[in-house]
Amino acid sequence: MIKDEATILPAYKPPKARSLLEPHRLFLMAVFAGIFACAVIYMRWDWLPKYQDRLIAGIWQTLVLLFTTAFFGFLLAVPLGLAQVTGPRPLKWLANGFCTIIRGTPLLLQLWLLYYGLGSLFAQFPEIRQSFMWPYLRQAWPYGFTALMLSFAAYEGEVMRGAFAGVPRGELEAARAFGMGRFTMFRRIWLPRAIQRSLPTLNGETVLQLKSTPLVATITVVDTYAVISKVRQDTFLTYEPLLLLALIYLILTGILVAGFRFLENRIPSRGA
């Protein structure tokens, strides 16, 4: 295990806002606009109206997956981080082992293990097949959701470990000096401070999570990527649908980054 905070991917950081009107930039923008116009004019886009509705439904599916898995993943990350910092030995090992295994194997493999491995194992037990859970277990999205959530939890759990460990001793000691109990101290000081310290990484982690979502298309969840795959198969076009797909993700990432920047500006923080 590398135990550096630097092990977290260099997340996407927006470039500093410099003037967009420098002459070379205007030139570059003209070139890109030209390429874009050529792509619009000379490539085939007549399929677009036919798939418009499905595409919007796919984007919605992607976003729902992204936000639910990030939210629940974060909830799971807090105990994972805490267990690694102060938990009793077995719990510590368990949390650490979980993070190592999830972070040490490809998400695609985890996804297939859950869906094709575990999913078909479930079917062999009549108790499960007759239970109220079966209508859900039959579908693909619970597996996609679980895999994505566990992955987010493991990566963010690593961050939370650092965040819990990094809360200055003095603050905790001050809390104790005020006569706070262990639990009150955790609830009032340690947890909020750790979450505050982990917030800057959330931006990057969420973008990474967005980039992981298309993998669920390989287990028949119909997200943005799956809709575009369908277009590719129906039209036999290689590049146009993929370029549109790239553009969609680019825009989604842009919105995410801008949204987080807006939130960060609203939450007052002194350089953690």
Binding site: Y116, G119, S120, F122, A123, R129, R138, Q139, A140
Partner: peptide, 8 residues
């Protein structure tokens, strides 16, 4: 086929 066998 696998999903057919798995009842999905």
């Amino acid at each position: 086929n696998n999903d057919l066998a798995a009842g999905r």
